[in-house]
Design a protein around this nucleic acid. Structure first.
Length: 276
DNA sequence: AAAAGGACCTGGTGGC
DNA sequence: TGCCACCAGGTCCTTT
């Protein structure tokens, strides 16, 4: 489900409601997520204060008194702000009950997400320590991508979706960014020049920033912490539009499959062979 | 060592 | 209506 803008939207949605609150209880109804949710969190979290909510890639980090909760929403996860009155739905796996009458409820039909606990420095956690740069921070540049690309035998769409390179760019925004930058998703990264990578970085940053402003993309089941939709899907130019006309040039949008993910492109705006 | 593919899950959709 | 195949916003782990 969520790419970086959706996770950022959730982060902003919950932060003001839970920062400063103290956890009173944790209801663990279903611990079988991507990794088993540690049973100890129901013991050690009560009494701890949530000091800050941050994000690294698509991981949400809840800084608590004695450590961090590390939360990933996977493909179908939601974090909802509810209260004690809201009836349980199927796949409502975990509740964090706070002392300010807010409940933070984790819901995840596919259970690809995770909720883990660490008392160690959180950025050294094995899931975070090897992550690439944040796409909206200053070290994400055309030079950075260009230098990493030189020794790689990989197509550009897989490259920008690789979390060890840059975090947070999932299938939707990879497609949108490549369209905006005019780069075919199957271009080998070592054929892409610096100028093109600079264009791509700008495109990724524009797309992600705009999506955050709109509250993320809602296709099927994304919801922010209030349970409402985002609006960026109305801005999608290429994703899901195979067979439609490119709004820039009128050519029919094509789709192909790359690494088991559907990719969309305009054959005219994103030529396979570039002209330098 | 890098790259490709499999694995983990449920739910919705479209075809027959 | 039912059954089946396939697809879905992710990414770690295993195999090649």
């Amino acid at each position: 489900m969520p790419e970086l803008p959706e996770v950022e939207t959730v982060k902003r949605g919950i932060a003001t409601h839970i920062e400063g609150a103290t956890i009173q209880a944790v209801n663990l109804r279903e611990r079988r997520l991507r990794w088993e949710v540690p049973e100890e969190i129901a013991i050690i979290l009560p009494g701890q204060r949530i000091e800050a909510v941050t994000r690294r890639g698509k991981y949400l980090l809840l800084k608590c008194t004695n450590g961090h909760l590390l939360i990933h929403l996977g493909m179908s996860g939601k974090l909802l702000l509810v209260n004690s009155e809201v009836p349980l739905k199927k796949h409502d796996h975990i509740d964090f009950i706070l002392d300010n009458h807010a409940w933070l409820r984790y819901h995840d039909p596919r259970r690809f997400g995770c909720i883990l606990w660490t008392a160690e420095p959180v950025l050294q956690h094995r899931l975070l320590v090897n992550l690439g740069v944040e796409p909206l921070e200053i070290d994400f540049t055309g030079d950075y991508l260009f230098n990493l690309a030189q020794n790689k035998q990989i197509v550009v769409k897989k490259f920008i979706m690789d979390n060890h390179i840059v975090v947070g760019v999932g299938n939707i925004y990879a497609n949108e960014s490549l369209f905006l930058a005019g780069i075919h998703p199957e271009r080998a990264v070592n054929t892409i020049n610096l100028q093109e990578f600079q264009r791509l970085v700008t495109a990724i940053q524009q797309i992600l920033t705009a999506a955050i402003t709109k509250g993320g993309t809602t296709l099927r089941d994304f919801a922010n912490s209030e349970g409402t939709a985002g609006y960026f899907q109305q801005e999608l130019r290429i994703y899901g539009r195979a067979g439609e006309k490119c709004e820039r040039c009128g050519e029919v949008i094509q789709q192909l499959r790359l690494a088991q993910r559907t990719s969309y492109f305009c054959p005219h705006c994103q030529p396979v062979t570039k002209s330098i």
